[in-house]
Design a protein around this nucleic acid. Sequence first.
RNA 1: GCCGAAGUGGCGGAAUUGGUAGACGCGCUGGACUCAAAAUCCAGUUUGGCUCAAACCAAGUGCCGGUUCGAGUCCGGCCUUCGGUACCA
Length: 821
Amino acid sequence: MKYPFEEIEIKWQKFWDEKKVYKTDLSNTAKKLYCLVMLPYPSAAKMHIGHWYNYGPTDSYARFKKLKGFNVFEPLGYDAFGLPAENYAIKTGVHPQDSTLKNIADIREMFLRMGAMYDWDSELMTCVPEYYKWNQWLFLQLYKQGKAYRKNAPVNWCPSCQTVLAREQVLSDGTCERCGTTVIQKALTQWFFKITDYVDELLDGLNKIDWPEKTKAMQVNWIGKSHGTEAEFAIEGHDEKITVFTTRPDTLFGVTYVVLAPEKELVQKITKPEFKEGVDKYIDSIKSLSEVDRTSTVKEKTGVPTGAFAINPVNGERVPIWIADYVLATYGTGYVMAVPGHDKRDFEFAKKFNLPVRKVILQAGTNESDELKEAYTEVGTMINSGKYNGTQSDIGIEKISANLEAQNLGRRTVNYRLRDWLISRQRYWGTPIPIIHCDKCGEVPVPEDQLPVLLPYNVNFKPDGGSPLAGNEEFVHTKCPKCGGNAKRDVDTMDTFVDSSWYFLRYLNPKFNDGMFDSELAKNWMPVDTYVGGAEHAVMHLLYARFIYKFLRDIGLVNGDEPFQKLIHQGTITSQGAKMSKSKGNVVDPNNFTEQYGADVFRMYLMFMGPYDLGGDWSDKGIVGVDRFVQRTYTMFETYKDIAKENPSNDKYEIGGLNDAEKNIYRKVNQTLQKVDIEIDNFRFNTAVAALMELLNELKGLNECRKDLQTYVLERFALMILPLAPHLGEECWNLLGKEKTIFEEPIWFEADSSALTKDNALVVVQINGKVRAKIEMPLDLPEAEVKKIILSDDKVKTHIDGKQLVKEIYVPNKIYNIVVR
RNA sequence: GCCGAAGUGGCGGAAUUGGUAGACGCGCUGGACUCAAAAUCCAGUUUGGCUCAAACCAAGUGCCGGUUCGAGUCCGGCCUUCGGUACCA
């Protein structure tokens, strides 16, 4: 009979639900395992194959761990605030709350259909006051410590999303991470979280966690720590100084000009009157450029002189001050000393504007008088550098830095690329920022007992350039908590990455009323043991969550320094070579396959396709193979219906007491047990499925085994397939005639180690590295015996006859390599 | 440019510490069953040579070179693809 998946899937889902088999007892922490998967965003677009690929295999891992005796906590929630719902509302008029709740219902249904073992009592969504109240509370705690602050700064503005973005949310090509529109720069007063307070810890903590090296490298690069020296250049005729940051103080003698970022205020102060027009014009021309154009490395460098001069602290030399857009106001001090001889960018710039190039580092094997064709940026011997001449430049770095410090003209310092996290959003569908602006008292935090600041339902969320909440009079007008006078609420909402930076703590008790989360539970259940999600969050979510976790630790709410111990990235499933998206029209609907083959086959096929972290281009070519495997499995269990009732198995069999067919199968099943165990544990589902297929092929000889051994084998087969195809697994177990289901009483069979050995060894004979024969012989034979057998082999003889044996290498029970001449 | 990962049959992909390359699956070919087809089952399937066939021989894991008794795996130099990042001083 064909495996009736519709019937069987519904049957077990209902059963699991009724028995509440997935409810985790959080009071039992002896063998706790927190398995977390990044919470889905409930967008209007239906779940696609990528979702199944993310959630299905992770659930299989969690189930496997449960069978292995772990007390597994596997929760699920919804990242329910955010732009797409609001944009959808603008387009269709459907309120974000309504569409979001509907989408959540759809997603939940899909997860049930998948047969995932989520603890539904822990389900949460971020868009309800019970949740976002605690975003506000978190904000206030950060605020109290000066870690949430407001400043006017040039920020990234997405003209399409009509909101500012954090730096991490701007892609490398200068476009918006969400919508792909080119982001522009705007100076605005916005709220920031001071992630930079934790910068060193965020860097060092990476050494303590089991994450993909690639991801750690991305965070390291993003944080961008660099050691260097600040040097002070006096400005001719001004009291102010220009402090530059450099990683190469050894090249200070090669400075031939100084460059300021055009937007720095100092520029206005020092520009000579006769240069003012040129400078103003230049600054204007820069403003009209987008961030993409501005930072493009291909673009020719531009700049203008200010007419002012700076004094080099090491040699008192007078050098011109320029402004140029290749110097960024946001990195270092915004001022740069230019050493064209030994910096690529400075070289280019100097060549273009005919500024002098001075060689101060001599490349080994070249002459002082050789003209520099390009900047030499490596270590060399210092020249034209006064008393440092002849010094190796890497030593010169130390010497000059020490000297600057001694003269109070500079200091060694550290610079970071990481900037504070901009969390304000000029949008509606998010957490209101709990701040009141009072004319008298200024910025006043909403008292904690007045939280949550509710997000009003009625609001005009059509974009008109400002925050939608500003249009809701009732929301905006309030009393100042300090003086009682009329005041206005902050009308911005928070970046949704705030929601997702601590949701995993809330899962432990989403109904908790006395705080952000149940701190006691968190102390017992954190860190998350295994976290699975997309690599695209490497420098956004995964950095923010680490930061917030460290802050929560500092205010005593959690123990430990890192929230996610082990991190796994699932690969991306593409379709026709591209990411699946509605606009490309290449979205593959999972329902096509679940309707035809059932959830188990589909899940298993996704796992069988290839390595989990690789992803790949979608093709349904092989799904019939997995379907056949499931059909054959089901047929086999039907054939042996109720066998466990009539012929209970032993826990173990003595190899010696088995006939050949039994021996083979007994060994194979135990080998597979060991293999499947290791493979699933390491998220190598493809090889786990393959091992089970191999076993099934071997079980053709099952009817030649004694009955109770048949039970032994089938019990193990059912158990192994269960994490991968949960409905089928339960059904198979049930067919054996078992009273209890596996998930009521999770068990796992350990492999019988005595069954993993072989009777014979197959020794491969190589002659000059080429395989010439394969000879079966008893295990662990002394080498001399082995040699005797091999040299008497006909095939071997033909290859060594008449030749001289030079060398022999024997790898016991495996390889015998003979070198002849 | 820099950082990271990958490149294996017609296809998806296997291969402890260097030790039988191609597991498992798809597809294809042949056969069984069938009036026929589908489904299912059995056998074969890296390429080339030789052969009725088997045996056998040769080549083969992106390219070139190296280390080694032995390299998909290690080392050096490239090429391609995919991610990340990009004037960071």
